[in-house]
Design a binder for these strands. Structure first.
Lengths: 324, 324
DNA sequence: AGTCGTTACGATGCCCGTAAGGATA
DNA sequence: TATCCTTACGGGCATCGTAACGACT
């Protein structure tokens, strides 16, 4: 058994069982992968992939287990490399952050400013995507951190730590009827077409629930992943915006009116996550702490030891998180 | 980085930094290991081993971390092999049990009888040793299970599951003064020379504590690791035996008198343990259940998920264990 | 002086890449 | 028909083992 063989089977799965595509991504030849996969299967005496003729069709049950362990191993191989880097060049390295547009645009800039100031030699890479893409990036090790709010069920392979709570605001143009009200009821809001996040980003959670609890159904006429896009369409008069309060910039958005909606929708919690069992560089601990000051290194290490998000939630049950 | 390189550094540590000895154990040449170790160090850019001239003297701090992760990886490589074997030959394989003489002699025979009857094709290997040897065998993966009572602090890398409680008995020859008493006090017992387990086996825990709580100090004139040896010396009149109640066989020991001592010494708990993160074969789950019927596969899997012996103790806090 | 790790060197064997073959959708 | 995996073959390279060297205890 060789590490490359494990890498190959893992990547073949990541490439939807397409060996040719895998070969291209790994900058190697396709027969090489094919042969190594077969050799591993021969050595283990089991099929990892099911085949119909010469096409890989599915992963066998045994293959599933093998691949899970292989991914653990590959993660730990990365950890070894990180340990070495930590000792050779403590303030140098890469930091890959996967997050949503909203976080990248409104929550992170200050943090990143502080970070690159402290660690100018660390290369920072931001990956934007849907919650499921974010989860996958982090789970595969392509991203060091996942920062996200929704769809926590996607993050089984990750340690997720709560960072802060945030609420939503209603956003309308200044000449909109709602602009006069300081306190909007859910029933009033339901009378207007809604402009908010796409399903899976924020909808299907607190927004949906807020309406449903009042027996109402929001009429979402437009949805997008980024607050900037949403605000643009609010400006076009397409509807009433329901967006994260932090994504309203008083300077830029002075043509809009924001009405706090924390009484209509329960707060959400943004979390930062990383792969279970992965070694974190010193600057990674610092990044976490810059982002969420209560997550000091000892706290993070304690949570890592729990290894289970249910237990971690309990650990932070009594922690007072900031509200943004 | 190659798996062999990780194997090499791990084994070099296991062989007390003696590369020559490591080479012999691995049936390979000594320069081969030396070179691979160096190549790994070069690739990582760090020293794993400290050297004085050409001798390996110690493990560097970075090396310590690397070796820990390497051991995790090697354990998971074993897991992959086991997964494969589980699918190719479910009722065939090896079972290595590390335990103390007492367990091997009195607690295990029936269990093993049941087991080899159910799994005749599984090769069983028993390893006897001190608690610390047992812990090491299991932690290195040389043994699948550690079965032991004492020195739980040694078992940090293992998942330890409670199996049963047991008490001690006082054992004397029939003509001994104590043989007449049905209820012996700790003060009475303290007047006689004691024959019991060596330090670290059972002493230094409940026996020591039982005396100390009464402000007494036992006078241990002879100690050994096995109850059989202890009984032999009780027969020689060397002293009063204090041994595990289960190690008294009414048939064989009809020349001795056993007096229950559960009121003098708190019960002890025998546990079965295995490496964290290791894949268990189907027959291994069955072995555990044969040994401790309450440890069914779902229960064991639940405990494995906790990964922490403190949490596991809580999990079993309310479980009623058998007393032997 | 003996044990031990490093260096040097030669041979085996593995892995990779190109090219051709055959099956599936 | 186009895509895709497998087989076949040849070149390069890494690994391993033997032998000699140098260093520490």
């Amino acid at each position: 058994m060789k590490l490359q063989q494990l890498r190959y089977i893992s990547e073949v799965v990541n490439n939807h069982l397409n060996v040719s595509a895998t070969a291209e991504n790994l900058y190697t030849s396709q027969p090489g992968i094919s042969k190594q996969v077969r050799m591993l299967e021969d050595e283990l005496g089991i099929q990892i992939f099911g085949r119909s003729g010469k096409h890989l069709t599915h992963v066998t049950p045994a293959g599933e287990q093998v691949i899970n362990i292989a991914n653990d191993i590959l993660g730990k191989v990365d950890s070894i490399k990180r340990v070495a880097e930590e000792h050779t060049q403590p303030d140098r390295g890469d930091l890959n952050i996967a997050t949503t547009d909203t976080q990248a645009r409104y929550a992170l800039p200050n943090v990143i400013g502080t970070f690159i100031n402290r660690y100018p030699k660390v290369n920072l890479h931001m990956h934007q995507g849907t919650p499921s893409q974010i989860s996958e990036l982090a789970a595969r090790g392509d991203a060091d951190f996942a920062i996200a709010t929704e769809a926590m069920h996607l993050y089984h392979d990750l340690i997720m730590l709560p960072c802060y709570h945030w609420n939503r605001s209603i956003v309308v143009k200044k000449d909109h009827p709602l602009a006069q009200l300081s306190n909007v009821s859910i029933e009033t809001l339901a009378q207007y077409p809604i402009v908010t996040y796409v399903f899976g980003f924020d909808r299907a959670s607190e927004i949906e629930r807020g309406f449903n609890q009042a027996g109402l159904e929001p009429r979402v006429v437009f949805s997008a992943t980024s607050a900037d896009v949403l605000k643009t369409y609010v400006r076009l008069g397409l509807g009433v915006g329901v967006i994260a309060s932090m994504s309203i910039d008083p300077k830029i958005d002075d043509d809009l009116v924001a009405i706090d909606a924390s009484h209509l929708f329960a707060y959400s919690t943004t979390k930062i996550g990383f792969r279970k069992g992965s070694f974190l560089r010193g600057y990674m601990y610092d990044f976490i702490e810059f982002f969420a000051p209560h997550l000091t290194r000892p706290v993070v290490e304690q949570a890592m030891a729990l290894r289970d998000n249910t237990l971690i939630e309990k650990m932070f049950a009594t922690t007072k998180l900031p509200i943004r």
